[in-house]
Design a protein around this nucleic acid. Structure first.
Length: 577
RNA sequence: CGGGGCGUAGCGCAGCCUGGUAGCGCGCUUGCUUUGGGAGCAAGAUGUCGCAGGUUCAAAUCCUGCCGCCCCGACCA
């Protein structure tokens, strides 16, 4: 393609509303433009990158035995009522009426549609297993879209759904997708890590997220130095401590102290001259509307997701003042387990504590020397807190590290959540009706491209890994008015095109510096500079964007040389699992 | 939804406090010079100052309401 013909608006200025580097560069490099909050247009260069991601996904999905379908984006609300997610998905669902006042929604995901499709046409174990996928535009009315393609409302997604006759089959499908995902992201040139994750509102038994390592990522992860344990921060386990034998003699007498207007951990510490580790924090949660107290050591944080999963409830949030008062008889800031009027759970961090401080369930009073067993009781001890720096790996006891990542893929083992609710049944070998076992597997397309930019850039712009590059080569004739230069550039252009290489010929009548800057900004992996001086000795210059290494190459060898460079880059990225 | 910020030329911004001819840089157009890392000079074009009311002789500027966008939080595959 001739640059002068391309719709490729590049910009020097950093757009004011772009916070992270990938967002800034994708706009500056003319890949995307925002239409409105969380909704973007892909320009020609951006769309070529998207199509490259999609191509890699298609190849690996097909190789893994999945078949491509294309499901509707507009879905009748009844399907969502049937699965029970119409309520639960809440405001993320964009609902609207047609002319007959029939309610529809824009598909934020397609479990319902695919389950409906399969239940109608799959009747016997002979038709299973089945894995169907699509690449579709999804719409989720995000509370807060942000960071360009990172969190959009409208976004491209590959979603796959597997249907199996039994657990063993479902495991196999899951493992196959897991392996395919590793291949996909490796081929995209990303540094990533699969981590254990919470399955959230989609439900299911367990799941893994594929996180691309990047400081701008919205997810925090924990991983072990020694073994391959890695988990999303919200999922990361804390090993249960050993239960110490506490003898009653060490208990000091319970004491009530006047603590006027002393509420927070810091205030209690400075007022009583103690450390947070001597306090037991009592948080009151509303779990599906019921008050639940959670005890935790004063210096640590409750992980609400762990509490939610432990209780098996669908909604959890910190209680409001009203509920706190009903449970404790006191305003916020003075809760404690002694004589509290609700269920009490405790994090492991509290298990071996004695003579601790808590709120007194009475305004302006705290209790000293509280002891579980003597003064209050706990329904059970469990892992309910957020993992922290000093913790060790729950699997092997090794040291753990923290990192941030961008969630580009998520695989879920759904079990029968949807197949049961929507009656996706089949007849087994013995003629008995059984429920299909499902899995679902998503990849954010635009987010994958953005993650790549986040990982591969420098101060001059994007550095596309070869497999995602919108064009693999850019030819830069230094002076288009010099006939010999243009003729040579044209010649190389023809040779490379003949080898099926995607190449831009920068035929603009611009100064060399401008063209170099644009080539760097848009991140084309290989640049061939054609200048008068080198041409005089029959040479052109090959420059590698990533390394900035520049070498001279004879005119008649340049096509073969560049072809080889591209092949090596692609091969290096495509090691399979 | 709570808190904060912003809305002026395609992009980045000043002007607003203290009302009185709408500006700067980049980009764009034309010409001349220049030509290996975002050139120089000259001449140009481009605005419902987010929208709607109000105050005033006069509103980008003051007041009220609304809309949009961004950030933090809450929430979320």
């Amino acid at each position: 393609m001739r640059y002068s013909q391309m719709f490729l608006p590049t910009g020097r200025e950093i757009p004011a509303d772009a916070e992270i580097i990938s967002h800034q560069l994708m706009i500056r490099a003319g890949l995307i433009r925002k239409l409105t909050s969380g909704i973007y247009s892909y320009l020609p260069l951006g769309y070529r990158v998207i199509r490259n991601v999609e191509r890699i996904i298609r190849e690996e999905m097909n190789k893994a035995g999945a078949q491509e379908v294309h499901l509707p984006m507009v879905q009748p609300i009844e399907l969502w009522q049937e699965s029970g997610r119409s309520e639960h998905y809440g405001t993320l669902l964009l609902k609207f009426l047609d002319r007959n006042k029939h309610q529809y929604c824009l598909g934020p995901t397609h479990e319902e549609v695919i389950t409906d499709l399969v239940r109608n046409d799959v009747k016997t174990y002979r038709q299973l297993p089945l894995n169907l996928y699509q690449i579709q535009t999804k719409f989720r009315d995000e509370l807060r879209p942000r960071f360009g393609l990172m969190r959009c409302r409208e976004f491209g997604m590959k979603d796959a759904y597997s249907f199996d006759v039994d657990e063993a089959g479902a495991e196999k499908s899951y493992a196959r997708m897991f392996a395919a995902y590793k291949n996909i992201f490796r081929r995209c040139g990303l540094r990533f890590r699969p981590v254990e994750a919470d399955s959230g509102s989609i439900g299911g038994k367990y799941s893994h997220e594929f996180l691309v390592m990047a400081d701008a990522g919205e997810d925090a992860m924990v991983f072990c130095d020694k073994c391959d344990y890695a988990a999303n921060l919200e999922k990361a386990e804390v090993a249960a401590p050993e239960k110490k034998n506490i003898v009653g003699e060490s208990f000091l007498p319970l004491e009530s102290v006047h603590t006027p207007d002393v509420r927070t951990i810091e205030e209690v510490c400075s007022f009583l001259q103690i450390q947070p580790q001597q306090i037991v924090k009592t948080l009151i949660f509303a779990a599906d509307g019921q008050a639940i107290a959670v005890l935790i050591r004063g210096d640590q944080e409750v992980n609400e997701i762990k509490v939610k999963n432990y209780l098996g409830v669908s909604e959890i949030a910190l209680a409001d003042d009203d509920m706190i008062f009903k449970a404790t008889g006191a305003p916020r800031g003075f809760a404690g387990a002694v004589k509290i009027k609700c269920r009490v759970l405790a994090d492991y961090s509290v298990m071996n504590m004695i003579n601790f401080v808590t709120g007194a369930n009475q305004e302006d009073y705290h209790l000293k020397n509280v002891n579980i067993g003597r003064d209050c009781s706990v329904e059970s001890f469990a892992d309910l807190r957020v993992v922290e720096e000093n913790d060790v790996c729950p699997r092997c006891g090794g040291a753990i590290q923290f990192a941030r990542g961008i969630e580009v893929g998520h695989v879920f083992k759904l079990g029968t959540k949807y197949s049961k609710a929507m009656k996706a049944l089949y007849l087994d070998r013995d003629g008995r009706e059984k429920i299909m076992i499902m899995g679902c597997y998503g990849i954010g397309i635009g987010r994958t491209a953005a993650a790549s930019v986040e990982q591969n850039h420098d101060e001059n712009g994007i550095i596309w890994p070869m497999p995602l590059a919108p064009y693999q080569v850019i030819i830069t004739p230094v002076n288009v008015n010099e006939q010999s230069v243009m003729a040579a550039a044209d010649n190389i252009y023809q040779s490379l095109s003949a080898l099926n290489i995607d190449v831009i010929l920068d035929d603009r009548d611009e100064r060399a510096g401008v063209k170099f800057k644009d080539a760097d900004l848009i991140g084309i992996p290989v640049r061939i500079t054609v200048g008068q001086k080198n041409l005089a000795s029959g040479n052109v210059e090959i420059r590698i964007r990533k390394t900035a290494v520049t070498s001279l190459c004879a005119l008649d060898k340049v096509a073969a040389e560049v072809h080889q460079i591209i092949k090596e880059e692609l091969d290096a990225a495509s090691g399979q699992d």
